[in-house]
Design a protein around this nucleic acid. Structure first.
Lengths: 151, 151
DNA sequence: GCCGAATGGTTGCACATGAAACCATATACG
DNA sequence: CGTATATGGTTTCATGTGCAACCATTCGGC
């Protein structure tokens, strides 16, 4: 049985966590040129923009829940984006602890330019899979992720 | 056609790079307890140990090629492991620039203890998939990764 | 209404990392 | 041989990150 292999033949190349990490790194690198090199956005900032584009307005907490990023990471990303005028921040009328976040005009323009190119790049990355396989892949990933939700 | 969606409905939740990164993070976190919290090993160090366990001896360059890690990252991981007496380093007789790396007794012992537990944890993570699906997943990941090999 | 706990968000700190500069050794070519 | 170049590996620097401590506001129990 596969369960009884000795530890002598342990091979990282068939170890899912490692392979997952390596692929994620490679893919991320392939995309970085678009938002990092060309627009000076890091991954955290890109994600904040993407969520604000998709579903405004949001508070930092909502972004944190959506992205599962550390709250400090979200806070710093928002700060940077606000500093560059890509995001507006307004204290919520309901609760002064929150801030409602939205894309500014400039932020919307940036995303309008960026999204089609990011989509195109994703399509290239996914080219080796049929559309059925793509669905299957995302579905399997969702199944793997579910038990790992904490909180 | 799916190709003609406007940028207005872009949703990170269905964006593969993001989903991949999130899953990889979660999985990595789930494993970290084993080698990080209990043995003070970071991911880079764990990978070096795993490769040296699997295929000794190796030079830093070979580990770098195998893991696709930055050479500085490998260098620092090896230094730390040597400092803890888990790895031996010996200048290669063929070329003084290289160093042949091997696990020390302590390193082998550590891996003998760690590998079964890591395997067990991996099995838990993979539980939501049938063994056929697991193969399929790794195979699809390999197909996605191949065009991203650089150099 | 008032005090303690909870909650959204920020900041300080320690650490890991990638890129580039750098060092030492080996190879190629005159 | 001797110099230029390539290569393995290390170090320096700037940056991003998680964690924990912290601040401000709000909520819950009395």
């Amino acid at each position: 049985m596969a369960e009884h292999r000795s530890s002598a033949d342990f091979d990282l190349e068939h170890f899912l966590p490692y392979r997952l990490d390596r692929l994620a790194d490679r893919v991320s690198e392939a995309l970085a040129r678009l938002y990092e090199h060309e627009h000076g956005l890091n991954v955290a900032q890109w994600r904040v923009l993407a969520w604000l584009h998709h579903q405004p307005p949001m508070t930092a907490k909502q972004i944190r829940d959506a992205t599962r990023m550390d709250k400090a990471r979200v806070s710093r990303a928002v700060q940077a984006l606000e500093g560059r005028g890509l995001v507006w921040r307004r204290p919520s009328p309901h609760d002064q602890r929150w801030h409602d976040l939205r894309l500014s005009e400039a932020g919307q323009q940036l995303m309008a330019e960026l999204i089609p190119r990011v989509r195109e790049r994703e399509a290239q990355l996914l080219a080796p899979l049929t559309s059925q396989e793509r669905e299957q892949l995302l579905e399997m990933m969702a199944r793997l992720e579910r038990p790992l939700q904490e909180g």
